[in-house]
Nucleic acid binder design. Structure first.
Length: 474
RNA sequence: CGAGAUGUGGCUCAGUUUGGUAGAGCGCUACGUUCGGAACGUAGAGGCCGCUGGUUCAAAUCCAGUCAUCUCGACCA
C-alpha cells in the first residue's frame, strides 16, 4: 500500500483517533449508551450556545422569525412529496405505540420538517400580502444513520432549520443565497474557517430540492465536511401541500420555497480545522472561555491582583480564574487541551514588575505585558488570533487544492493523499460516478465562479465550462 | 450494512491462553508542605469484570446471544 501523505505532519498521525480522543479529554461529549446520540457536556453546549446566538441574531436582522414545530409527523403527511420521502424513508424513526396502545397511523420522528412547515404554510397563506414568511426553528431531528461519529454524523442532530416562502422564484432563490452568505460570513469571520461555496450536483442535492447550495470546509486530514446548506425548491414542493396564494394580478400561484440549516457539525469543523496535538484550539468568538487567568502562588497579593484583572475584563470577555488546587503546569496543559484562546499568568514576580504574562493558544507565544495596557492588549490579541487562525487554515487549504486535468494525475493523487481536486466536468452523472467508484472521491460542489474558459471533462473529454470540486468526505 | 477490534474502580490498562477469594499506575477524598510547564508526604475511599442466558462444585476467564464504543469499507448528506 502506498504511503499516504498526512496533511498535518508528525502531530496528528491517526486523525480519527485523535479526534475522538480530543472530544473526550476536553470534556466536550460523553457517550449516552444510545447509538448515535451523544451527551453534549457544558463545554460543548456553551460553544453551541455561542454559535446559535450569533446566527440567531443574524437571522432576525433580516426578518426571520422563530417558530416551534412538533417533533412528530404523521406518515401520510410525510408520504405526500415523493422525492422527499424517497430520500428520507430509509433513515426515519417511527413511533408505533402511545403507551400500550398501537397508533392508527404511525408517527415519524422528524428527520427534517419541510412537510410540517409546508402544511402549516398552506393554512396561513392566502394573498401575496401574506408573503414572504421567513421562519426558523432551533431543534433536533432524527435520522437513523448506520454509522455515527460525534458532531459529524449522528442519529439525533441538533440544528437550526429555516423555512421560507416567497411570491416569486427570483426572490426565493435570492433569499436562499442570502442565507448561504450569512453562513459563509459566519464560518469565515467568526469560526476562522476558509471554505468553498457552490451548488451540489443533481445526484448530490437534497431530496426534493431544485438547487442545493452548499458550503464545504476542508479538515486537517484533507477531507471535506459539508458545513452548511441552503436549498431552493421552486414551487413543486408547495404545490403538493397546496401553499396557494393570490398574486397582485389577482391570479393564483404556489409559493416559492427555501429551506436551510446548520448543525453542531460546526463544532466538529472547529475541532478538525484548528485543533492540534495538544487539543482544541477555539476561535475566540465562540470559545466558552476566552481568557483564563492562572494565579501563580496562592498569596493574598496574587489573589488581589487576579480579582482586579478579572473585574476589569469580565464585562467584555468570557473570562475565568483557574482556582483549582493543581500545580500550575497542570493548569497550563489543561487550558491548552480546552483550547482557551488567551491565558493570563499572574504571579508575585509579575506583580512586583507591574506586568502580567499573556500566552496565546494559537501560536504558543508568551509575552510579558504592562498592566496599564491590558485592555488594548487583549483586544488586539484576540483580533490577531482570529486573523492567524484564518490565515493558517487558509494556507493549508490552498496548498491542498489541486487543479487537475487528466485522469492519470487524478489517479496518482488519489492514491497517495486526501485533498480537494478541482477539474472540468461535463455535467453527466456517469462521469461523476466514474470518479467516485474508481477513486473514492465524491463530487462536493460546483463552485460559484464566473468566466470559466472552456475546457474538457476530466473523465470523458467532452468540451464544457463547468468545474467541480472532488474530495473524500465525512 | 460488511470486515476487524474493544468493553475489568473516575481514567489508562494487567489478569482471560490453562476456570479456584478482583490487581497496578494515575486520578479522587482528608490534612499538611508546595506553586513560572502535568509537585510532594501521610492517611483513606472506591469494582453485580457492559448486559442476558448457558456449561460447571466453581466463570472476569469457556460457550451463545445482545448492547455500546473504536478503526476501515459500503450507504447517506
Amino acid at each position: 500500500m502506498a504511503h499516504r501523505i498526512p496533511v498535518v505532519v508528525q502531530v496528528i498521525e491517526d486523525f480519527s483517533k485523535w479526534y475522538t480522543d480530543v472530544l473526550k479529554k476536553s470534556e466536550l461529549v460523553d457517550y449516552s449508551g444510545v447509538r448515535g446520540c451523544v451527551i453534549m457536556r457544558p463545554y460543548a453546549c456553551s460553544m453551541w450556545e455561542n454559535i446559535t446566538s450569533i446566527l440567531d441574531k443574524r437571522f432576525k436582522e433580516i426578518g426571520v422569525e422563530n417558530v416551534s414545530m412538533p417533533m412528530f409527523i404523521p406518515e401520510s403527511m410525510l408520504q405526500k412529496e415523493k422525492n422527499h420521502i424517497e430520500g428520507f424513508a430509509p433513515e426515519v424513526a417511527w413511533v408505533t405505540h402511545g403507551g400500550q396502545e398501537e397508533l392508527t397511523e404511525r408517527l415519524c420522528v422528524r428527520p427534517t420538517s419541510e412537510v410540517m412547515f409546508c402544511s402549516h404554510f398552506s393554512r396561513i397563506v392566502n394573498s401575496w400580502r401574506d408573503l414572504p414568511k421567513l421562519y426558523n426553528q432551533w431543534c433536533s431531528v432524527v435520522r437513523w444513520e448506520k454509522s455515527s461519529r460525534p458532531f459529524l454524523r449522528s442519529i439525533e442532530i441538533h440544528w437550526q432549520e429555516g423555512h421560507t416562502i416567497h411570491e416569486s422564484p427570483g426572490e426565493a432563490n435570492d433569499f436562499s443565497l442570502k442565507i448561504l452568505n450569512i453562513y459563509k460570513e459566519f464560518l469565515e469571520e467568526k469560526l476562522c474557517i476558509p471554505l468553498i461555496c457552490g451548488k451540489k450536483t443533481e445526484s448530490e442535492k437534497f431530496a426534493g430540492a431544485k438547487i442545493t447550495y452548499t458550503i464545504e470546509c476542508m479538515m486537517k486530514d484533507g477531507k471535506s465536511l459539508q458545513t452548511a446548506t441552503s436549498h431552493y425548491f421552486g414551487n413543486e414542493f408547495t404545490k403538493v401541500f397546496n401553499v396557494k396564494f393570490q398574486t397582485k394580478e389577482n391570479k393564483s400561484d404556489f409559493a416559492y420555497y427555501t429551506s436551510w440549516g446548520i448543525t453542531t457539525r460546526t463544532i466538529g469543523a472547529i475541532i478538525m480545522v484548528h485543533g492540534d496535538k495538544d487539543g482544541l484550539v477555539l476561535p475566540p468568538d465562540v470559545a466558552p472561555i476566552q481568557i483564563i487567568i492562572i494565579p501563580i502562588k496562592d498569596s493574598n497579593e496574587v489573589k488581589f491582583k487576579v480579582s482586579e484583572v478579572f473585574n476589569l475584563l469580565r464585562t467584555k470577555y468570557r473570562i475565568k480564574i483557574d482556582e483549582k488546587e493543581e500545580s500550575v503546569g497542570c493548569k497550563f496543559a489543561n487550558s491548552e487541551l480546552r483550547g482557551i484562546p488567551i491565558r493570563i499568568e499572574i504571579g508575585p514576580r509579575d506583580i512586583s514588575n507591574n506586568v502580567f504574562v499573556l500566552v496565546r493558544r494559537d501560536n504558543r507565544k508568551k509575552e510579558i505585558c504592562k498592566f496599564e495596557t491590558i485592555l488594548e492588549k487583549i483586544e488586539c490579541t484576540i483580533n490577531d488570533i482570529k486573523l492567524n487562525l484564518y490565515n493558517s487554515a487558509l494556507k493549508r487549504f490552498n496548498s491542498n487544492i489541486l487543479n487537475l486535468n487528466s485522469l492519470e494525475e487524478f489517479e496518482k493523487t488519489a492514491r497517495i493523499r486526501d485533498c480537494f481536486i478541482k477539474s472540468y466536468w461535463c455535467g453527466s452523472e456517469k462521469c461523476e460516478n466514474y470518479i467516485k467508484d474508481k477513486f473514492g472521491y465524491g463530487s462536493r460542489c460546483i463552485p460559484f465562479e464566473e468566466n470559466i474558459e472552456e475546457g474538457s471533462c476530466i473523465v470523458c473529454n467532452k468540451k464544457c465550462d463547468t468545474k467541480l470540486y472532488w474530495a473524500k468526505s465525512y
